[in-house]
């Protein structure tokens, strides 16, 4: 993680620097290399921003211009934006999504953080707990859809936001555990041994020593779990109903409508992506650490 978040050390590319200062034949080669590299970068960036930029472009098109394949609208209009903000209860769906995402993520952390500590430091469950967790992650989510659907129905919380949030909180535990393990392994055992010397028990060590040290990892894991919940579709499709629909469900049903207006669909999609884009802007450094921690351990 540290390698990703710090600016790269300048010592890592002396060969390139040398090449630039070398005689002209090599200078030409490195010029061509630089040009190719720049073209490659622009192509890659272009590919990854294109769909989003196109959504923005379509959102400002008039209904008749959507059917032409001009990239940018010739007469930009706000009509689609007014229509969505005025008639489509988009903030209700956004609110549902935000609630499910944030609350479930906190729930996931509440389960996973103590567990990862117990597994790492007290070897709880030996190898069984980690491998069982991985096994659950490997299984396609549709496996647990039905049993959990019946569980929610039996307990009377089917089609409630609380029920969906409960399912999300549990469902993301395997991912959280996997990510948190990477952070946990980086904390030297001497730190909690020192706390134990001072007479602190496991729970006090966790709260007073481990939690503060792991905080960046916990935040990253929390954001990733919140995003996973925010994006989730299959469970929300079965476990919510009209009032409790989340953003992806509302949009998927909206776009399945035959008479749908593509410009309005683009607006609704962009509004749905906005919270994610904001989260990325604010938390990108932490997120990268979080995503690579599990792989690095």
């Amino acid at each position: 993680m540290s390698a990703m978040t710090q600016s790269p050390p300048s010592t890592s590319r002396p060969s390139q620097r040398d090449a630039e200062a070398a005689p002209s034949s090599i200078g030409l080669r490195s010029m061509v290399g630089w040009l190719l590299q720049t073209v490659a970068i622009i192509a890659v960036l272009g590919f990854f921003v294109l769909p989003i930029v196109y959504l923005v472009a379509v959102s400002f098109k008039t209904q008749s211009e959507v059917a032409t394949s001009i990239f940018f609208p010739s007469e930009p209009t706000l009509a689609n934006w007014y229509a969505i903000l005025g008639t489509f209860p988009i903030f209700g769906f956004l609110g549902n999504s935000a609630f499910a995402a944030i609350v479930s993520s906190l729930g996931t952390l509440l389960i996973a953080v103590p567990a990862v500590y117990a597994i790492s430091r007290y070897n709880m469950g030996g190898n069984a707990l980690p491998s069982l967790t991985l096994g659950i992650y490997m299984a396609p989510p549709i496996v647990s859809l039905l049993p959990l659907f019946f569980l929610l129905r039996a307990t009377g919380i089917l089609h409630t936001l609380g029920g969906l949030t409960f399912v999300y909180a549990l469902m993301n535990v395997p991912v959280a555990l996997w990510l948190l393990q990477g952070f946990m392994h980086r904390i030297p055992r001497e730190i909690d041994q020192a706390a134990a010397m001072d007479g602190a028990g496991p729970i006090r060590t966790l709260v007073a020593v481990i939690l503060p040290t792991m905080m960046p990892g916990i935040v990253a894991t929390g954001i990733i779990c919140a995003v996973l919940s925010y994006n989730e579709f299959l469970f929300a499709f079965f476990m919510t109903a009209s009032e409790t629909r989340t953003m992806p469900i509302a949009l998927a049903l909206f776009q399945g409508d035959q008479i749908v207006n593509f410009g309005q669909m683009a607006v609704a999609s962009l509004i749905g992506i906005l919270p994610i884009a904001i989260a990325i802007l604010f938390f990108q450094r932490w997120l990268i650490g979080g995503l690579t921690a599990g792989a690095e351990k």
Partner: peptide, 27 residues
């Protein structure tokens, strides 16, 4: 970093809609 995050964190439903618009037969 910011750009690279966007695709992997955008809800798949919205990704589907964006690509549907790009692949439409008319327009």
């Amino acid at each position: 970093r910011a750009l690279i995050f966007l695709p992997m964190m955008t809800p798949p439903v919205m990704i589907g809609i964006a690509w549907k618009l790009m692949l439409l037969p008319s327009g």
